[in-house]
Amino acid sequence: MQMRTIEISVGAFVLAGMLALVFLAVKVSGISLSEDRGGYIIKARFDDVSGLRLRSKVTMAGVTIGRVSGIDVDMLRGDAEVTMEIDGEEGGLTLDTGAKILTEGVLGARYVSLVPGADPDTLRDGDYILDEFTQGAFVLENLIGDIVTRLGAS
C-alpha cells in the first residue's frame, strides 16, 4: 500500500516534470530550431549596420521571414556584409528586392526589412541583394552632423 502511493506520486512527479519541459519547449521557446527549417541564404551590403545583431529579424511587410545569421565587415570596400537566412523555398524574392535596416520598438532593436521589387527573376541561394537597393541603418548622430554642416555652409 505504502509502496503504491510512492510509485503513483513518483510517476505523477516525473510526468509533471516532463510536461513542464514540453511546455517550456513549445509554449515558451516556440520551438525555434532555426537550423533545420530549410530555407536559404541571401546576402546584402550596407554602408552602416549599427545596432543590427546576429539573429535579428528579417521581415517583409512586417512579417518575420528569416533571421540575420552573419555580419562581416568588408575592409576593402568599407561596408558591412549581412548574411540572412530566409525561411521557405528560394524563388520568393525578386532580383530587385530592396533591403533596409529599420528600428523596432522603443528599445531600438534593429531589423532588416525587405521590400519586394518587380523583376521577373528571383534571388537564388547565396545571391547578393543589389547594392543600389540597400539602405543602411539610420544613425541619428550622422544626420545631426550632416544638418549642422549644411547649416554652417549656407
Binding site: L21, L24, A25, K27, V28, S29, G30, I31, S32, L33, S34, K57
Partner: peptide, 19 residues
C-alpha cells in the same frame, strides 16, 4: 507578453543550456 517571449527564447540556447 507571449510572442516577445517566444521570439527571444531559443530551445537549445536557453531551455537546453538551463537544463
Amino acid at each position: 507578453f507571449w510572442s516577445g517571449m517566444r521570439d527571444a527564447v531559443e530551445l537549445w540556447e536557453d531551455v537546453g543550456k538551463g537544463m
